[in-house]
Design a protein around this nucleic acid. Structure first.
Length: 100
DNA sequence: ATTGAGCGA
């Protein structure tokens, strides 16, 4: 299952996130969303775990715990839409506000 | 040096 991890410390890296979740089961991929240009962390990330049972346990166990010195928010991720790939996946914003 | 709700080029 896909797991969303929010409120991450800006110092947390992919490997660190993966290491934490691996304590509860197999992790197929873990990534912290970093800004493409500044390289700075966006403060949240996603973890993919093949075993749903283990994933659910990880969510319960890790939600509210500290990673890199900050209490993180862990829950099931939304479904990433496959559709909007018209611009290489990047949606331009025509105003100052983010729109989805 | 800088930030802190939110869901991913």
């Amino acid at each position: 299952m896909n797991i969303f991890v929010g409120s991450l410390s800006f110092s947390v890296k992919d490997d660190e996130l993966k290491a934490v979740f691996e304590q509860y089961g197999e992790v197929s991929s873990a990534r912290v969303l970093t800004d493409k240009f500044t390289g700075r962390s966006k403060g949240f990330g996603f973890v993919e775990m093949p075993d749903d049972a283990a994933a659910q346990k990880a969510v319960d166990a890790l939600n509210g715990t500290e990673i890199g010195g900050r209490a993180v928010v862990v829950n099931q991720a939304r479904e990433r839409s496959e559709e909007p790939r018209r611009n290489g996946g990047y949606q331009k914003r025509d105003n100052g506000f983010k729109r989805y």
